[in-house]
């Protein structure tokens, strides 16, 4: 469906390049929810935003992203506008403010459809009504202004708008981080329903800092650290048998119901994520990694397949 090869996306600053995404490769298959997890500043958001809209200071430094065999990194803005919303669509991180406050939902949707060459207003509006029902909103919502909706309702409306033109790939960038747990669960259920049952979209890329969410919804997970992918594999493997030290540390620092300070002391990861202006040499985790050896400080580990469709970039698993 989507193949990303050795993608490099940097930010240009007066003090040099910030290597936000530095040689990341992965593949998103048809019918799957592909999760990307990582802490703030690991490049996950830059990665997906570069697929949709590159503007300065964001620069594409190398690599390709093939959507149905076509490299979307080289499209110009005009060509791109054609495939946005129809082939690839994003629900951005701050999507709660993304809706034009002066227009009714119905008008927002029609403007969008018109731009992509739709002419039958009735068809679009009936589709909108149907989709609103799908996300448990009343048809009346179409006639409301964004300001009249609560956070959770707005998020569902944004979902409907982003998927109305049936994009192949839907990117969801931290869409639940501003929501309460109950609304978060509702949104996850809806995403699941959209792809697995209604098959409105072919694939979903779900980006989050909360790996626990991916455990619930993703088919496969990519863990990123400091602009690099460190581990890619099926959700079950990543969560229950993590191989990369970073994935292990991250999962161990996650509190779970049933673990109490009195009984069991969890440990965080020592240190802080590195600045990407001057990332550490070799493996970028080495200053924080308990297993680091000399080679880790010198040589960058390559991504290797340690078992079927489970990849890890760590020197511990060489040969």
């Amino acid at each position: 469906m989507l193949r990303v090869n050795d993608l490099k996306v940097y930010y240009k600053t007066p003090s040099g390049y910030i290597k936000a995404v530095d040689g990341v490769s992965f593949e998103v298959k048809k019918g799957e929810i592909f999760g990307i997890a990582g802490e703030s500043g690991c490049g996950k958001s830059t990665l997906v935003n570069s697929l949709i809209l590159r503007k300065p200071p964001m620069i594409h430094m190398g690599g390709e992203a093939l959507l149905e065999g076509k490299d979307i990194m080289t499209l110009d803005e005009k060509e791109y506008r054609k495939i946005r919303y129809t082939k690839i669509s994003i629900i951005p991180q701050y999507s709660l403010n993304a809706l034009n406050p002066t227009k009714k939902i119905r008008e927002i949707v029609w403007d969008l459809a018109k731009e992509h060459g739709y002419t039958d207003k009735e068809e679009i509006e009936s589709k909108l009504r149907e989709r609103l029902r799908m996300v448990s909103l009343s048809e009346q919502v179409a006639n409301m202004y964004p300001i009249e909706l609560s956070g959770g309702m707005k998020q569902r409306v944004v979902m409907v708008v982003s998927t109305l033109l049936d994009p192949k790939i839907l990117i969801a960038d931290e869409i639940t981080s501003a929501l309460d747990v109950t609304n978060q669960r509702i949104i996850l259920e809806l995403l699941y329903y959209f792809i697995k049952e209604e098959k409105i979209v072919d694939s979903i890329i779900f980006i989050t800092h909360d790996i626990g969410l991916l455990d619930k919804i993703a088919d496969r997970i990519m863990v990123m650290y400091a602009g690099k992918a460190v581990e890619i594999g099926p959700t079950e493997k990543i969560i229950n048998k993590p191989t990369h030290p970073y994935t292990q540390l991250l999962l161990n620092s996650l509190p779970r119901l049933g673990i109490n300070y009195e009984k069991e002391r969890l440990q965080g990861i020592p240190g802080e994520p590195p600045a990407l202006l001057k990332p550490p040499s070799g493996c970028r985790l080495h200053p924080r990694c308990p297993y680091a050896t000399d080679i880790c400080t010198m040589k960058e580990p390559e991504m290797i397949e340690i078992e079927k469709s489970h990849f890890v970039a760590c020197h511990m698993y060489r040969g």
Partner: peptide
């Protein structure tokens, strides 16, 4: 609604 690692979610019973 807590995405706890110990439990599996079933996407059937809608909240």
């Amino acid at each position: 609604s807590v995405p706890d690692l110990n439990v599996k979610w079933e996407f059937k019973k809608r909240i």
